[in-house]
Structure formats: structure tokens, C-alpha cells
Amino acid sequence: MDDSVIISNVFHHVAWGTTIAIYFWLVGASAGSFVISSFGWVFGITRYKPLALSASITAIILLLLVPILLIWDLGKPLRFIYLLLPSYWHATGPMSWGSALIFSYPIAMIFYTYFVVKNNVTWAKIAGIVSIVLALSTHWYTGVVMELNPGRFLNHTALAPLLFLTGAFISGIGLLILILWIQNMIVSAEKRINWSLIEEMAQYMMYGLVFDAFLLFLEFMQSLYGSLNLVIGHEEVLMGVFRFPYLWMEIVLGLIIPFIILVSPLKRTRAGIIVAAFLVAVGVYGMRIWWVMGGQYLQTFY
């Protein structure tokens, strides 16, 4: 190694940074909580109906932050409108689809919420179905927008959307649990959400964790047996520079510890569930960080 060294090169920035990672996280959490919201009205699991409103409002608020972040992250914020103009529309650009989704998804959700409030079962269901498709698509898209870059080895994997959706699912539930917990503390007794529902959601979260771990393992295998770029990407970038968000935040805090809580007797304690929910949300944030910034990191030296 000493006898072949790069002695001079220019430097490049990582093009998408913290703002994008946060945005990915917010979209994910939004999609996740919306899925929960839809359980009652769309899938007819009536015991979830009481949750629907808080869940969809959480989803809407999370998603309203997104365009602000995204637009301000543009070099030319005012030109965000170009993303929606037909004469500028570029069908092959993943971001084109993304912008369509990001703008239509909250609108659909607002309709859905309106019908939920109005207790209009049919229309709530229709709007709910549309919204849930959009929710999943919006988050599917965040995985895709990183995936469709053949030069970014760590991101260029067909598992990306699935990883993102799973992350969305678990972090959405996690966040929602936290919100409901706080809501329960504030509202009057009769309006409180039944804790058993929350325990059930925690159970779903646990399944999600298992699936997430499985996907991560697949990715890990791929990088071990991949090209040197992938191997280095894993060894030096993920386990090196991004060790904290990757190993500590996502895997240890976000997967292992919540999993242990959720399969142990602790899962029956309130504190256990709250802590697990919090850790899962944090873990997914860590994942968004390394996924976005770590994925581009290696190449900036090239």
C-alpha cells in the first residue's frame, strides 16, 4: 500500500447531506404512521379507529415539514415550481416522480382526514386507499432516488426501497407510540387510546425489526462478496467514518436493544415500550444518515 499512493487530487462535496437525510426520515415516519391510521378505516380493523385521527395528523404534520426542507435545500428555492411544470417535467428523473408524490400525498391525506373527521366511511376508505398507495410510493421513492445511481455502490441495490419501507414502518410506529403516549397524558380519560392497542403496535414493530435485520443482513452479505468498493464501503465507511450512525444508532440502539425489550417481559411495561419506540425512531434516523451521506462518501475521494 505504501508503494502506490494518491498524492494529489481535488475535493468534492457530498451532494446530498443532512437535510436530505432528515427529509427521508420524516417521510418515512409519516408513511409509517399513516399506515397505522389506515388500519381502522381502510382495512376495517375497527379497534384501530380511535387511532386514525392522531395518526393521520402526525403524518400530515411530518409531511408538511418535508417540502419546506426540500425546497430550501435547492440551490434555487424559488424554482421548485419547475418540478411541477409540464414543460419541465422529465419522465426518467426519479425526482420528478418524487415531487409528484410529495405534493399529492399530503393532499390525499388531508381529504382522508377530513372524511375521518366527518365520519364518512365510504369516502374515508376511498381517500384512505389512495393515500396509502401514495404513502407507500412516497417512501418507496426515497429509496429509489438513491438506488438509481449506478455509481453509488452502497446505495445501488434493489433492496433499497424495501429497506426504506421497513424503516418507515417501524419508525412510523415508534413515533406514533410516542405521540400517543404524550397524547394520553394530556387528554381526558375517556379519550385516551387503549394501551393494549399500543402493545399490539409494538408487536408489529417487533416483526418489522426482524424483517429489517434480515434485509440488513442481505445487504451485509452482498457487500462482503461484492467488489472492493463495496467491501471498503462497508469496512471503512460504514464501520469507520459512519460507525456511530450505522453500528451504534441503527444496529445496536435501533435494532438489538428494542428487539430484546420487545421479546422480553419488558414489553409488558409501559417504560419498555416507550423506550423501544424511541430507540427505533432514533435507529432509523441513524440509518437515513449513513444511507444518504455514507453512500456518497467513498466516491468523493475519487
Binding site: H13, G75, K76, Y82, G151, R152, Y302
Partner: peptide, 21 residues
């Protein structure tokens, strides 16, 4: 005049050939 500065192209280019001014 069309570029919104979203940097998608920078992420996409495998050669670091692009930059944000």
C-alpha cells in the same frame, strides 16, 4: 436557467464531474 440546484445529477454522475456553483 432551468437548473433548480437539486444536485440529483451530482449524485448520479459516477465521475464527480459536476459541482454546485
Amino acid at each position: 436557467n432551468r437548473c433548480i440546484g437539486c444536485r440529483t445529477c451530482m449524485v448520479a454522475c459516477p465521475y464527480n464531474a459536476r459541482h454546485l456553483i
